[in-house]
Simulated scan of single mutants.
Amino acid sequence: MTARPISRRGLLRSALLGGPALALPGCAHEDGPRRRLTLATGAPGGPYHAFGRALAAEAARTPPYPRVTAVSSAASVDNLRRLTAGSADLALAMADAAEQALHGAGPFTTPARVTALARVYVNYTHLLAPAHGPVRQVADLAGRPVATGATGSGAQVLAGRLLRVAGLTGGRAVREQRLGLAESVAALRRGTVDAVLWAGGVPTPALSTLARRVPLRVVPLEAEAEALRAEYGPVYSAVTLPAGVYGLTAPATTVGVGNYLLARPQVPDRDARDTLRVVFDRWRVLLREVTAGARLEPRFAVATGDLPLHPGAVAYYRSVYG
């Protein structure tokens, strides 16, 4: 039987403050051949899919060679449901959706048993509109068609909360179009939506390509970042889109939310530990097509909020901290 997941707070207290040593997880499921791990990612062309494919490829060539197969999905919410159902062993998910699953809130009717391996990078919320269009601030979205992410994606969770704190409900509600990234880009080019709400790395290649064809306005979300943090806690933060991306002439403040690499508690400790070794050995390759300028360090990676760390992850981080 796998040991009870240990929270990051306990791990950090021991590793960083010199407290009593944590009991190492048991060695259950350590024997026998390595199992193949199914990693639920996202839609082709999106950052989750790019990260997942890169992780599967690097695992095949990086000791200790865990066996990882990346599969496409509708992203966060879909991935969390797959973990719960047992059709995926590993998954990527936005932090807000993961915490909803853990507590059985939002689109999840019962609490999910999921554990974290790492917080791998931060999503930047993009609210983009044509530069010469009617949307100049968040309030201008009222009553307009807006692409808010595919059904089953974490973008839908974020969009619902963001629109609520912005007062865009009831008679001021937007006309949500549940479209994935590629479909959102196409709809903005056709003019069938007035804005796109997307959460991903910076720059997101599909949006960089769009910005070269259509002059874009990046709508700042500083007030909304503060409101989300006040309402839902530190799962949200204010982050800065740098000048130069998507044609920005000056930095713009927006909403940041972490992305977690998750595992079913039943994943053997050795497989979780070995997957993390690949992640930290090859993080530059894994993040290259996902978000520019990001780094992955253990002190950042263990910040998984309410999500408990998998015992194999605890063993890995203890080996790093010494």
Rank of each mutant, 00 (worst) to 15 (best):
T148S: 09
G180Q: 14
G171L: 00
A166D: 01
Q156D: 09
L162P: 01
G167A: 02
E176D: 14
A159Q: 06
E176N: 10
L163F: 07
A129H: 01
R178A: 15
A186W: 07
E176V: 12
A155L: 11
L163S: 01
R144V: 03
T169C: 04
T148C: 13
A182L: 08
E183I: 00
G152I: 10
A173M: 02
G171A: 15
A159Y: 06
V165M: 12
T148N: 06
P130Y: 07
A182Q: 12
R178P: 15
Q156F: 00
L162Q: 05
S184T: 14
V165A: 10
G154Y: 01
A159S: 14
T151Y: 00
A147H: 09
L128R: 09
L181G: 03
A150D: 00
A131K: 15
A142P: 06
A150I: 14
T169Y: 07
R172A: 14
P130R: 14
V135K: 03
A129V: 11
A173L: 04
A166C: 07
A142R: 04
H132K: 15
L141C: 01
A155R: 02
P130Q: 09
L162R: 04
S153L: 05
A129W: 02
H132F: 07
G171T: 11
T148H: 05
G167R: 03
V174Y: 01
G149E: 05
L163D: 02
R161G: 14
G149P: 13
A186R: 12
R164E: 15
G171M: 04
L181M: 10
V157G: 05
A173Y: 07
R136N: 11
L181N: 04
T148A: 12
L181H: 07
S184Q: 11
R161F: 00
D140Y: 01
V174Q: 06
G152M: 12
T151W: 01
R178I: 00
A131D: 12
P145H: 05
A139F: 02
G152V: 03
G154M: 03
T148Y: 11
S184E: 03
L141Q: 05
E183P: 05
L162S: 06
